[in-house]
Amino acid sequence: MESNSQLRYRPIIDDWDTFLSSAQTPLPYVVRTNTLKIESPALQQRFVAAGIDAVSYAWSDELFEMPEPPGRRIEHWLGLYYAQEAVQTLPVMALDPQPGETILDLCAAPGGKATFIAARMHNQGTLVANEPSGRRQMSLLANINRLGVLNTMITAYQGENFPMGTRFDRVLVDAPCSAEGTLRKESSLQQGASMNTISRLARLQKRLIVRAFDLLAPGGCLVYSTCTFAPEENEAVVTHLLQERDARISPFNIPIKASPGLTGWLNEAFPAEIQHCVRVYPHHLNSGGGFLARITRA
C-alpha cells in the first residue's frame, strides 16, 4: 500500500511496484567480515562448520547473508564480523580508504563504517571517528574494542565545528538524516519523514558538508551519504556545497544497480554533474536505501 509520503517519490523511483514490494519485505540478515581479525574464506569455513548456511554476496565477498539474527553468535562476540545492512557498506567502498592515510569519519557512531574504514586501512594510518553524543560514543567505543581497531582516535566535536588544524586525505560524512531508506526495519518510516524533519536536517547537513570539504587536503576525497530518499537532504545538500566551494563531483563505480542523482526536484534545478551521485533503493540490492556523492577537492 502506498503512503502519501511515498507517493512523493513515485516520479523518481525506478520500477515503482518492485520498490513497494521490496519495502514490505523484511531485511535480510547481513554481516561484514572484519578483515582485521579473519579473512572471508576462513569466516565462511566457520559458518560451514557450525552448520550455518551463510551465502556470500556476488558483488562483495566480505558480505554474507545469514539465515538467522547474527548478533547472538560467538563469532559476533569475538568481533569476526559486524552486522550491517549491505547498503551501509557502499559509502566506504566509494571512499576507498588506503593504508597509511589520515581519514575523518565525521558522524561515526555506532561505528559500522568507521570499523570498515579501519579494516580497509589495515589498521595503518590514522582514522578520526567523531561523535558528539556521549551515549552514542559508547557504542562506537564498544565496536572499536570488539573489532580490534588500533588506528582510531575518538573525538567529540559537533561535526559542523570540527577544528580546522588538520587536513585529511579522505572524509566521510554519513550525515544524520530522516532515514527513509531504513523503512524495511522501521515501519513508522513507511509513511516517510515529515517536511519539518527533512528541512531541519537539511540545514544541519549543509553545514556538515561544507565543513567536511574545508577539512580536505588538496586532492582529497569526500563522500557524502545518507540513508534517506529526500532530495532536500541529498542532491540539494550537494548542490549547496557546489555553490559555496570549488568542489567537483567525481563519478565512481559501485558494484550494484543504482539510479543517478536527480537534476531537478519540484521547482528546483540541480547542476548537471549531480547525475554522478548515486541513489540506491531497497529493490536494487535487497537492502535499505540511500544516497552517495563522491566529491573531490582540486
Binding site: 582514522l127 560514543q137 580490534g148 588500533l150 577544528p163 580546522m164 588538520t166
Partner: peptide
C-alpha cells in the same frame, strides 16, 4: 604501536595524534 599512559591505564595504537584535535581518549586499544 604508539604507547600512551595515564596514572593507571596504558593504551597502544598505530595512529598518531593530529594538530589541533583533542581526542576523547587515547588512540587504539
Amino acid at each position: 604501536l604508539a604507547i600512551e599512559a595515564n596514572k593507571e591505564e596504558i593504551w597502544g595504537g598505530t595512529g598518531v595524534s593530529l594538530p589541533g584535535i583533542y581526542s576523547a581518549r587515547a588512540i587504539g586499544l
